[in-house]
Amino acid sequence: MTDGADEVRLTLRLPTKLRDQITRDAAESGRSLNAEIVKRLETPEGESAKLAELKKQLLDEHQAYVRMEALFDSQMTVIEEYRSIMRGLTQQTLRDLGTIESLSSILTSLETPPTPEVVDMAKRLLAQALETKKGIADELESQRKKYGAD
């Protein structure tokens, strides 16, 4: 707008729907009704349509981003729950393996030796427990290196 020196007062008749639309648009953009009409007259016709299309594309992309972000958040929640379950299972397995080690040690060090079959079974269980513990320890170390300390 100018300082008023080269302005002309004009009486204008508009359909009510068009006036209402321009009034809403002016309020949304923070302009007066007059400023909105001037803006529209100064804006090339194709530019308004292009701007509307760009706004629609931006809104569509924003909505897609919001959906993608929600999906990502839900996937991260599932991953964290999975990791928590796996930590619990690993801890329980390690406790169970410790129990097997203790029982094997007790069986092999009794005053009255158990039967050779029991001793053999205890040794096999101990060997398997130690092998499983080593496998878990190696896997945990691999995971720590890959994903960081947990």
Rank of each mutant, 00 (worst) to 15 (best):
K146Y: 06
D150F: 13
I37Y: 01
A122M: 00
R67H: 10
Q75P: 10
R40Y: 01
I85W: 04
E80D: 05
L12H: 03
V38E: 14
Q91V: 02
T2H: 04
D120N: 10
S48F: 09
I136V: 12
A35C: 00
V8D: 08
M76I: 08
T108A: 09
P116S: 15
G30S: 08
L12W: 01
T16C: 11
E117L: 12
R144I: 07
L130E: 14
L10K: 14
I22W: 10
K50Y: 06
T90W: 03
S84E: 15
S74T: 14
R31Y: 03
S32T: 11
V78F: 12
E80M: 08
A137H: 13
T11V: 12
A52L: 13
G88T: 08
K56R: 15
A64Y: 09
E81V: 01
A127E: 09
Q21W: 09
E80Q: 13
P114V: 12
L54N: 01
E141K: 11
Q128Y: 05
E141F: 08
E141T: 14
S84N: 15
G30E: 11
K146N: 05
V8H: 05
L107H: 03
Y82C: 07
P116V: 14
A122T: 00
A27T: 11
M1P: 05
P113D: 06
R31I: 01
L33W: 00
K17L: 13
Q91I: 07
E42F: 05
E45F: 02
I100D: 01
Q143F: 02
A70V: 00
S32N: 02
K50R: 15
L58Q: 10
D3H: 00
M121N: 03
R83C: 05
I22E: 06
A27K: 09
A64G: 05
T108K: 14
R144E: 13
L58N: 05
L126V: 00
M121Y: 09
R95S: 14
L18G: 10
S102I: 05
K55C: 10
R40A: 05
S102G: 02
K146H: 11
Q57G: 06
T43H: 02
M121I: 10
K17Q: 15
R13V: 08
K145Y: 09
E141S: 15
P113C: 04
T11I: 06
R13A: 07
S102W: 11
K134V: 07
V78M: 11
A26G: 09
R144T: 13
V78G: 02
D120Q: 08
A70G: 04
L18A: 13
T90D: 08
T132G: 01
S29N: 12
A52Y: 06
R144D: 15
E61S: 14
A149K: 08
G135D: 10
L51I: 09
P114F: 01
K39N: 07
Q143S: 02
A129H: 02
A35L: 10
S142E: 11
I85R: 13
D96I: 04
K55T: 08
R9F: 04
S29L: 13
S102P: 05
D25E: 12
L126C: 05
G98W: 08
Q63Y: 06
G4E: 06
R87C: 03
